[in-house]
Design a protein around this nucleic acid. Sequence first.
DNA 1: TCTCGATGCCAC
DNA 2: AAACGTGGCATCGAGA
Length: 418
Amino acid sequence: KLDKIYEEIEKPIIHIIKKMQDYGILIDKKYFENLSKGYHKELDKLTDKIYKIAGLEFNINSPKQLGEVLFDKMGMKSSKKKNSNGSFSTKVSVLEELEENNPIIKEILAYRELQKLLSTYIDVIPKMTGEDDRLHAKFLQNGTTTGRFSSQDPNLQNLPIKTELGKRIRNGFIAGKGYKLLTFDYSQIELRVAAMLSGDKKMTQIFCDGKDIHSGVASFVFGVPLEKIDGEMRRKAKVINFGIIYGMGVSSLRKSLGGTREEAQKFYDNYFNQFSGLRDYLEGVKVFAMKQVYTETLFGRRRYFPNINSRIPFLKNMAERTAINAPIQGTATADIIKLAIRYSEEDLKNADLLNKAHLVLQIHDELVYEVEEGFLMEIEKVIKNAMQTVLERSYLHYKTNVPLIVHSGFGDNFGEVK
DNA sequence: TCTCGATGCCAC
DNA sequence: AAACGTGGCATCGAGA
Ligand SMILES: Nc1nc2c(ncn2[C@H]2C[C@H](O)[C@@H](COP(=O)(O)OP(=O)(O)OP(=O)(O)O)O2)c(=O)[nH]1
Ligand SMILES: [Mn+2]
Ligand SMILES: [Mn+2]
């Protein structure tokens, strides 16, 4: 089995990944320079404001100093301290509770966002391009315990998208003249895999009907009709869906839901009552893991859990959560996407399109190509088809009622793909 | 200049 | 507070 995974899934894409890195992705350096100027100016203004309100200058980047200023000098009270070193937590979720308390909080949150964007992306990425203005980041085929890729130097799998200020960074990733960026992302991929592996009747039916669980949960949680679900609401629903499946506690769920503890408990119970097949499957995976000390993906990719029978509750519980996550995450964003990379390449080659489509990014369940404009539609069709048919084409000839759906988009830059 | 753990936050 | 999972990376502060 492991031999098959190597021969059929990993080995055939080694050269494709190498090609992707060598080809790189085109960067609009001028755009980044301008963005940097504007954001730095705003950051300086925020710095002054914060010093003024605090009545003293300090290093805002130091959580230790910030905590002392807010909670000692300014006398704000936070619910919790950190246990070990006794200093205050200053993370966003804590600060947000104090937002109405003092105007400094709003400025600190804005400062944090800009500082993050500038120091991690805007002031780093243009410096790392080659003479061709292309960025040749690394994609590690065995970068994770579940079989996912990782990316580094820089990491191109975590480019901002949630906030407007962050999303603008994606506009600096562009297609060359006469080319477009063409993107493909699997719809609700790990939910679909969860439905397949568990055989849950209701969840399978939802996907057969072409429905969207992320949006459905968002609609329920925010009490608005499906048509009025925006990206932010859907993203929050994602956290809830995957959180529940992978062992989130009720306290944490309550934070995501925004209601009372009782409501959260009810939501949780109701969720697994609706998807009882999923619940039973997850319990079964735990039992399997305790006996075998490993779990495996649809294709037999294994991960071992030495702590699964530990008497230390924290370690055992953590092992259980990782044990139920690995088969689903591994099937979706390792087995499936890697086969998709392989078959897409094969089909492009057979259609004589390989010199007109270049893989430039892999983002877990998403592939981004730079393609010659004139062949856009043709290429889109080939790749989407390859991605959606990987399971039946694979050596497993896997048949399932759960369809794999891919959403595609294209544009002149990564921020404006539609 | 480097390492390290802690803190914090970006994405999927 | 915490105990959805998988990652990478900037910064601080202590220590070489
Ligand atoms: N455990 C966990 N997994 C996540 C989370 N966010 C994303 N993932 C995993 C599961 C997703 O299916 C997979 C791909 O992420 P996407 O952003 O593409 O979401 P998804 O495919 O579910 O929905 P989509 O229809 O593409 O918007 O990555 C998360 O917050 N927790
Ligand atoms: Mn997706
Ligand atoms: Mn995705």
